[in-house]
């Protein structure tokens, strides 16, 4: 039996629980529960199975059930000084992937969508579907696993994922400065985060200790820099904009904000205005939903297009 074809009883039991009919919703730890529409009242709610399936530190890949918390995953990886790009906001692995929001340290850790190598989901027909592959490089067939990242459980319920891991850098350091964040971004080779609230800039450096020291020293040449315990506290709402737009946007629309320089994520007191899809993209989106969930039974109420 090939690696991709092994479906164990845990997954089969989850598929049975999802079943082939009636509306059903999936929950993780509800840390991003209010996004993309509210769940239709009266819908029954289930959770994905949890637990580590296989961790191969020497291959830098890990397979976990979707209901595992990101914290549990991180703890397991930390034993081998490894990490993934998934953010830990108190939620589950499946939730982090279904939402698709990147970690604060995206410049260093990479994006969530690049971490997913293989994914198993339960379809609207109640069947376990495998997509992607259990190796670090793969172009075998259509990229269904990419489509599932950020799809909010509207196409299938994520049951199990194989993720790429990376070595955790030996040294990590937050620093704080009033220097221009644009200059910092252009000066540093590979910071893992540059956060700016309009006045203060926080920089997260990581890597080999002498490299971190050298980058730190480079910044001290241009201005005053202080070590910091952590980064700034983040306002509740999340914006996604082209990275340089932060410098031209009318900040009153945001209230207090913290922007991730070079990335384009902004945490702000005010929510971002609704972003629209163009007509053709909307058409593909709706067709996609129809193909995967023709009766709209999965996560009813959540909507990434304009389906009913």
């Amino acid at each position: 039996m090939k690696a991709t074809l092994k479906i164990d009883t845990v997954l089969n039991r989850f598929a049975e629980a999802v079943g082939p009919s009636l509306p059903i919703a999936i929950e993780g730890n509800r840390t991003r529960w209010g996004l993309n529409g509210l769940l239709k009242p009266g819908t029954s709610v289930i959770s994905a199975p949890s637990g580590l399936v296989e961790y191969k530190p020497e291959e830098m890949i890990v397979t976990v059930r979707a209901g595992t918390t990101v914290q549990e995953l991180d703890t397991c990886l930390a034993d081998h000084r490894q990490r993934t790009s998934l953010p830990d906001r108190g939620g589950t692995v499946g939730g982090a992937i279904a939402v698709g929001h990147n970690d604060l340290h995206k410049l260093g850790k990479g994006s969530v969508r690049d971490a997913v190598l293989q994914l198993r989901y339960v379809s609207a027909e109640g069947k376990v579907i495998t997509c992607g592959g259990p190796v670090v490089k793969n172009v075998t067939g259509f990229n269904l696993h990419k489509l599932m990242v950020g799809s909010f459980g509207t196409l299938g319920f994520i049951a199990e994922v194989t993720l790429r891991t990376n070595p955790t850098p030996l040294r990590q350091l937050w620093i704080q400065t009033s220097m221009d964040p644009k200059i910092i971004f252009d000066t540093l080779q590979r910071p893992s985060a540059i956060l700016w609230d309009g006045t203060t800039t926080w920089v997260h450096l990581e890597g080999h200790p002498p490299d971190v020291d050298a980058q730190y020293a480079l910044l001290t040449k241009s201005g005053k820099v202080y070590e910091s315990e952590t980064g700034p506290s983040l306002p509740a709402h999340r914006w996604s904009i082209p990275p340089v737009d932060i410098f031209s946007l009318e900040k009153t629309l945001m209230g207090r904000f913290v922007a991730s320089i070079g990335v384009g994520t902004v945490w702000a007191e005010q929510p971002q205005e609704e972003r629209k899809l163009d007509r053709a993209t909307l058409t593909i989106t709706e067709r996609m939903k129809k193909q995967f969930d023709p009766t709209s039974r999965l996560n009813p109420g959540r909507n990434l297009g304009n389906w009913s």
Binding site: N102, G150, S240, I241, R275, R279, T281, I284, T285, G305
Partner: peptide, 27 residues
Amino acid sequence: LPDGEVATIGGLDPEPVGFDLRGAFIG
């Protein structure tokens, strides 16, 4: 698209709205 319509998928922002059709299209 094969029907002649033009769509822009993905975006310059880090978390574009909607399904990752960009990721589906590549490859």
